[in-house]
């Protein structure tokens, strides 16, 4: 019972309650002043415009890499499709008539509704033809077809780049 809160004296016992309120107001004002003076130290990121970069090993949406001449590095060896636990990669091989590396993917579709983003396709690829370093997350879409990322789309993805130059500065509201 000795430690039981005394409700009748809860406020009066803390004789300096008003003083504590004033001290608390000092604390809140110091935060206010700090955030006016140095808004760059705020934790909040202005999200759609500024994105914190994903860490380098983050598995984001896939991309197909290219040779120096722009042709896909993929040789349609089916390693990724075979290794894929979700069975979301569909490759239809095609053939170059005149090149040392004859095979290339005629179609290379990834069904993002099935993909579990495990990264086994990247690990199994012998040609470094598929990577998950775009820094993008799968976008929502209205139809199932829109979730099937085609070869052209995967080839068009770029690796993650540094965010644009905006950084909040002193006095930025």
């Amino acid at each position: 019972m000795a430690n039981a809160p005394s409700k009748s004296r809860g406020i009066t016992r803390e004789g300096g309650y008003l003083l504590e309120v004033v001290k608390g107001m000092g604390v809140t004002f110091s935060h206010l002043w700090k955030n006016i003076r140095t808004p760059e130290n705020r934790r909040t990121v202005a999200y759609p415009e500024i994105r914190n970069p994903f860490p380098p090993r983050f598995r984001s949406v896939h991309r197909l890499t290219r040779h120096a001449d722009g042709s896909p590095r993929c040789t349609a060896c089916m390693c990724c499709a075979t290794g894929c636990p979700a069975g979301c990669i569909h490759i239809v091989a095609a053939e170059y008539p005149d090149r040392p590396i004859e095979k290339y993917p005629g179609r290379f579709d990834i069904d993002m509704l099935k993909c579990v983003e495990c990264g086994l396709c990247v690990e199994s690829c012998p040609c470094d033809a598929i990577r998950m370093d775009t820094g993008m997350v799968p976008m929502p879409a209205f139809t199932r077809e829109d979730f099937i990322y085609t070869k052209e789309r995967l080839l068009s993805h770029e690796p993650q780049v540094a965010p644009n130059g905006y950084r909040p500065r002193r006095g930025d509201l």
Binding site: I11, T12, G24, M25, V27, F29
Partner: peptide, 22 residues
């Protein structure tokens, strides 16, 4: 406004005690 964002809300009995007894 400043007070609002500094001080937590009183309990009802504390409110009445503060008002009538202090």
């Amino acid at each position: 406004i400043w007070v609002r964002w500094t001080v937590p809300r009183f309990r009802y009995d504390q409110l009445m005690h503060l008002g009538w007894k202090l």
